[in-house]
Computed example of a mutant assay.
Amino acid sequence: MTRAALPAASAEMPPRSRWRTHQRRLAPWLFLAPGLAMFAVYVVSPIFQSMWISLYDWDGLGEKVWIGAANYAELMDDDAFYTSLWNNVLWLVLYMLSVPAGLMMAIFLNQTIRGMRLYKSMFFFPFVISQVVVGLIFSWFYAPDFGLLYQLIEWLTGTGVAILADDRYVTYGIIAAGLWPQIAYVMILYLTGLNNVATDQIEAARLDGAKGWRMLWHVVLPQLRPATFIAVVVTVIGALRSFDLVSVMTDGGPYGSSRVLSFYMYEQALSEYGYRMGYGAAIAVVLFAIMMIFISGFIWKMWRDERER
């Protein structure tokens, strides 16, 4: 009878012993719980609320009026929306220049030469200053009459160009301003990645005669995949949520030609021109969908590459 009773006694484990058994499995979730709760309340919930609001005609204060997909149907005939969307495409394509530019700067600054800390501080400086300050600096840089770029173009061609007042060049001028701190950010990511590159693989490649571009492409870049993934993701997000510089430098002008989706969303939902919360939410949903398509694609590619290794 004693032997038969043993399994039953062991099955009825006291709560304290059960907690100790599962403590290692439960502890990470307990540490993650506050962060997950904050993420659910302040990120996930507003996303679904925006989707819900986009189905209403609402000024933010009065009563909501259900209109279904009418806001999205209106977007399809809105020229300002297509202008904003096209400008976001330009931002996305040209912002990707920050990834190779940041990599080249990181490789240059990864050398052990005298005064390199000073050079690193100078290249790091654009990242630590506010986007508003960046916008003001470049507004003065482009300014007619006294702007350095304006005077340089006038000296070379005889006629100055007011970058921010010309609808042909304004978006490119704002993107150039945004690239300045973005390149510095990508450079920092790659500098961190270069510190983790295996030196034994570098030495082995040198013994095999690899150098220059062959060394970079076949030895260094494969080890920088995590840094490249993060750099691409933050660059895509930065390009699609480009609001600060547009607001500071042009306020969407001239004639709305420099609008992007995030600025147009603000203009429709919160500025004196709109107070159309439902329409602004519809623009936000479209922007979120575009962002998720790109980020999901990058995550899927990285997951597939990890499985193939």
Rank of each mutant, 00 (worst) to 15 (best):
M302K: 09
K211H: 14
H22E: 14
E272P: 06
R3C: 14
S296F: 15
V246M: 04
R20E: 12
R309L: 15
F288H: 05
Y279F: 09
A231V: 02
A281D: 02
A289D: 04
L245E: 03
Y169L: 12
G278R: 02
V260Y: 00
A69E: 09
T228E: 10
L30H: 11
D78P: 02
V285A: 01
M13G: 10
W19H: 08
L32M: 09
I174E: 03
M187F: 01
L224V: 02
R20L: 14
A205D: 04
P15L: 01
P181F: 00
I188A: 11
A73D: 12
Y172L: 15
G147H: 04
D166M: 06
V246R: 01
L240W: 02
F263S: 02
L109P: 01
E63I: 13
V43Q: 15
Q111E: 02
L149M: 14
M76F: 13
K211D: 14
E272K: 13
P254Q: 09
L55P: 05
M96N: 09
M187V: 03
A27M: 11
Y273G: 11
P144Y: 01
G147V: 06
I129L: 06
W213A: 15
K64C: 00
V170M: 04
T199N: 12
V248E: 06
S130N: 07
V128C: 09
R206D: 06
M96T: 06
V232G: 05
D208C: 05
A9W: 12
T171F: 09
M51A: 08
E203I: 03
V44S: 13
G256E: 03
D59Q: 00
V186N: 05
M104K: 08
V285K: 00
V234A: 09
A11G: 11
D59G: 01
A80F: 08
G297C: 04
G297W: 04
Y264I: 05
R276D: 07
F146V: 13
Y172V: 14
F243C: 07
L194Y: 00
V170E: 05
I283S: 03
I129F: 04
F124W: 02
M13W: 09
F288A: 11
V219Q: 03
P7A: 11
